[in-house]
């Protein structure tokens, strides 16, 4: 996105994990911008580093066994690196995070109303916590709020639990909401409801959303831009229409071809051979080359540089896919 001062800006992010002499670097060289109010989808297979990248923005990575370094990592101009007080204050309030498994993130022995009030006290001082909590419950479509507030998490369905998580996340009026596989555990009809709620909240509150998902259909329907991650690097990024209809990186193309779709019947599809490499043994050069049908010696030897494929559409590949009518 051009013409906007980015809300979140990351340049050359690398994350290391380990202890003693054993360190691995699951994420390196990641750069991305999120504009105010935009929805960016981050997609890729499990183990590609999507969640770690997002967690690094919130300071939720374990201290001591992880290291986050970047040339730039700012939220609205404020650095998120290190333990700056201002950066800490942003996390949880202006940058909120919702996880895949709502039941695992809620306290099972505390009524959901009190859990939301706790978030309100922390992130919205000066308001009346109970009233604010009811308002948040209504905001996420849980009514009657007074009755839902008295429920324990296990008394709610999966979709309702995820709405409670969203209510807590909204307590601080975040400007960036990170939604990490928010609907993976939900039924498809409930998923549709939760995503449409997220969409209307995003529009009403003007917040940006970083949607982490492995569901390309969800990314297509919801996001404006998409970034494809593989083995700790972003291999392709751009407007959703461009990336999904004319993918230039062979990995993006392979991901798209691996997923059966209702529209195109039973045409045989192939998965991607092999698996995402472990961070301790990332391949040389382009990390996708051992699984890539277009790989050459060059891909083995050299890391491909970032190149521009079109307006706002970038990627790293020595032999990008050509499209006849592009």
């Amino acid at each position: 996105m051009t013409g906007f001062a980015p809300l979140l800006s990351i340049r050359n992010l690398s994350i290391r994990f380990g202890a003693g002499s054993r360190w691995s670097c699951p994420v390196d060289g990641v750069s991305l911008d999120i504009a105010p109010g935009e929805v960016l989808a981050l997609v890729g297979e499990s183990g590609s580093g999507k969640s770690i990248t997002a967690l690094s923005m919130t300071g939720l990575l374990p201290e001591g066994t992880s290291e986050v370094a970047a040339d730039v990592m700012t939220f609205d101009g404020v650095s998120l690196l290190g333990d700056t007080l201002r950066g800490q204050a942003l996390r949880g309030r202006e940058i909120a995070y919702i996880f895949q498994d709502p039941l695992g993130s809620l306290n099972p022995v505390v009524r959901v109303g009190r859990q939301i009030e706790e978030a309100v006290r922390l992130h919205a001082p000066g308001t009346i916590p109970r009233e604010e909590a009811y308002g948040l419950l209504r905001r996420v479509g849980l009514e009657p709020a007074e009755q839902i507030a008295r429920a324990y998490p296990h008394e709610l369905s999966g979709g309702m639990q995820q709405r409670v998580m969203m209510a807590m996340a909204l307590a601080g009026k975040p400007r960036l909401l990170i939604a990490d596989e928010p609907t993976t555990a939900l039924d498809v009809t409930v998923q549709a409801k939760v995503m449409s709620l997220l969409g209307s909240l995003q529009q009403d509150l003007g917040m940006a959303i970083l949607l982490i998902t492995h569901n390309l259909g969800l990314a297509a329907g919801f996001a404006g831009r998409i970034a494809v991650m593989y083995a700790g690097r972003i291999v392709e990024a751009g407007p959703v229409e461009d990336v999904l209809t004319a993918p230039r990186h062979p990995y993006t193309q392979a991901l798209l071809q691996a997923v059966p779709r209702l529209g195109d019947g039973r045409r045989r599809r192939e998965g991607i051979p092999g698996r995402v490499p472990h961070p301790s043994c990332y391949p040389s050069g382009c990390r996708f080359h051992p699984r890539c049908s277009r790989a050459t010696q060059q891909c083995h030897d050299q890391t491909p540089p970032l190149q521009t494929f079109g307006a706002g559409h970038h990627g790293t590949c020595h032999h990008p896919v050509e499209h006849a009518h592009a």
């Binding site: 309702m160 498809v188 549709a192 995503m195 449409s196 959703v240």
Partner: peptide, 22 residues
């Protein structure tokens, strides 16, 4: 309810379930 590549809309499906109608 299926999010499809072809369908770009954030609006709920026309016959969506009533609120929290699991």
């Amino acid at each position: 309810s299926i999010p499809e590549m072809a369908r770009r809309s954030a609006s709920p499906p026309p016959s969506g379930p009533p609120s929290h109608g699991a």
